[in-house]
Amino acid sequence: MNRTKIVKLVAPLLALGMALTACGGGDSTSAASGDHNDQDVTFATEMIPHHAQAVQMAEMALANAESQDVKDLAEDISAAQGPEIEQMSSWLETWGEDVPDTDGGGMGGMDHGGTDGMPGMMSSGQMDELDSASGSAFDEMFLSMMIEHHEGAIEMAQTEQADGESPDAIDLAETIEETQAAEIETMKAILESQ
């Protein structure tokens, strides 16, 4: 009985403690502004336009894809990466850093944002080619491009895990690597089934 009462008293305190830890331990300045380094800033600054391009590609897939599997995957990509863009933007604002401009459908601001050397980014020409494709030709092009895009994001996420300092940014990098590796396997399976 006493043990049950203790568990009933301690469990809510543990839950509260974990919630506070997830929010930066109750000290919003330490986790957000103090516990980060240049790699964390680079990760967020580069991953935002990278994600924005993936969301743009996903929107094209919803409009142009023939396969329902491709459309379902596109919805998953948008649902995951949209909130991650908001999360990383919030970190940059808190850290006093510039947030990349992703307006203009993802392409307008990206051509001038120094994304040329970013792993997995599609060129404007590739994006135009994808946008003008339809049906099964679109599906194949989208899957091939998105596999390359995801591989680039995984490379960026691994760099963050190796060199970053912010626990939140490292956690997100781990999530990106895990999620996108699974999506690559799904995309390869869809390509093989066509």
Rank of each mutant, 00 (worst) to 15 (best):
H51R: 10
M57T: 09
M107I: 15
Q39A: 06
D139E: 06
D98C: 04
G24S: 11
L172M: 12
D128F: 10
D131K: 08
G25D: 06
G17L: 12
N37W: 14
Q68D: 05
L14H: 08
E59K: 14
P119C: 11
D101K: 08
E84D: 00
T159P: 01
H36F: 14
K188E: 14
M156Q: 00
T186F: 02
A52Q: 10
M1A: 11
E140Q: 02
S28F: 01
D131V: 06
A169F: 05
D163P: 02
T186W: 00
S166I: 04
G96L: 15
E155R: 13
D163H: 11
D38P: 11
I77P: 05
A31D: 12
S78M: 07
A54L: 06
L73H: 07
H50G: 00
E46M: 06
I6H: 06
A22K: 05
H36E: 08
Q158R: 15
D116R: 00
P100V: 11
D69V: 05
M107A: 07
D171L: 09
I77T: 04
G34S: 03
N64S: 15
H112A: 10
S136H: 04
P49F: 08
E93Q: 02
I154D: 13
P49G: 04
A61H: 03
K188M: 07
K188G: 07
I170M: 08
I6A: 09
M110P: 00
F142Y: 11
L9M: 10
E84V: 00
M1T: 08
D98V: 12
T42H: 08
A54K: 10
A15Q: 09
A157H: 13
D128E: 14
M141T: 04
S132P: 13
M18D: 07
P83Y: 00
F142N: 05
L73F: 06
A137M: 01
E160S: 07
G106M: 01
K5Q: 07
E93S: 13
T29M: 03
K188C: 08
M110S: 09
M88Y: 12
M47G: 01
V55T: 08
A63W: 05
V70L: 01
M156N: 12
P119K: 14
E151I: 15
G17A: 14
A58W: 09
I190T: 01
I77G: 02
N37I: 13
M118L: 03
S123Q: 08
S123R: 00
D27W: 15
T175K: 08
D163Q: 04
A15H: 03
S134Q: 02
M146K: 03
M146P: 09
S124V: 11
Q81M: 11
T45E: 09
M127T: 12
S166M: 03
A153I: 09
E93V: 14
D116Y: 07
D111F: 14
M141R: 10
D69N: 03
H112L: 02
Q56H: 12
A44T: 00
E178L: 15
Q126P: 10
